[in-house]
């Protein structure tokens, strides 16, 4: 039952990735992944919410009766999301305007309450914090990869409008990967999100299958070496 920190990290970022494996939180994943910066912004906001809500719920897990835990989770998450939203409004107004409704909607992201129920309510504070962090980073990874794919195909740039997230210093970050590119509108529009996510899930499955085959082939090699 008890997982090591390493396992928690690996599960959150890769094996149980919210975006690619659990397919939770698809609404923000598909809607805000039209550029790297939007994806990164929402991913980091979600990570912060996951981290804070996991810690808070792990702290109060022995005080809350199991019968009323779900309403308590909802209230904790709602408080954290409101705080994060106000903070973003104060410090990143540009990104706040671009992401709009999807910041308050983090509250409805199933992976937040999912981690509270499945992990934070049963584990200690330190482990819950790592789990929230890892899950959030996994979600950010999915958002950034999909955002990069759609931004390159759709606009031919990477880190476009980086100043929204990194301030004026970030303006120079924007890369024009394909010069004089006409733009492939489909990638920016909602169907592009679905097709792109499908392709990324397929690539992840191929990578996993490849790793599995290599792991299965390894003992045989070791045995041959011993025999030799």
């Amino acid at each position: 039952m008890s997982q090591s920190y390493r396992e928690i990290l690996k599960n959150g970022v890769w094996t149980q990735n919210t975006g690619f494996v659990a397919l939770l939180g698809l609404c923000p994943l598909l809607a805000t992944s039209n550029s790297v910066v939007n994806g990164l912004g929402l991913g980091l906001a979600t990570t912060l919410v996951l981290l804070l809500s996991n810690v808070a719920i792990s702290l109060i897990r022995n005080l809350v009766r199991p019968e009323v835990r779900i309403p308590v989770f909802v209230m904790v998450i709602a408080c954290v999301v409101t705080a994060v939203e106000l903070a973003m409004h104060a410090f990143l107004p540009g990104l706040y305007t671009v992401l709009g409704i999807f910041i308050p909607l983090i509250v409805t992201n199933c992976c937040v309450i999912g981690r509270a129920e499945a992990f934070a309510f049963k584990n200690g504070v330190a482990k819950s914090a790592v789990d929230g962090m890892a899950t959030g980073l996994g979600f950010t990874l999915a958002l950034v990869l999909l955002g990069a794919l759609r931004e390159i195909l759709g606009q031919g740039t990477l880190f476009g409008q980086a100043e929204l997230l990194f301030g004026e210093a970030g303006r120079g970050l924007t890369l024009h990967v394909l010069d004089d590119y006409r733009g492939f509108l489909l990638a920016i529009l909602p169907p592009g999100a679905f097709i792109g996510l499908g392709c990324l899930i397929a690539i992840k499955n191929v990578l996993d299958a490849h790793a599995k085959r290599r792991a299965a082939a390894k003992p045989a090699v070791a045995l041959q070496e011993v025999q030799a």
């Binding site: 006409r182 492939f184 509108l185 489909l186 990638a187 529009l189 169907p191």
Partner: peptide, 8 residues
Amino acid sequence: VVLLISFP
């Protein structure tokens, strides 16, 4: 449709 949406 892919073309119609992407390159009107």
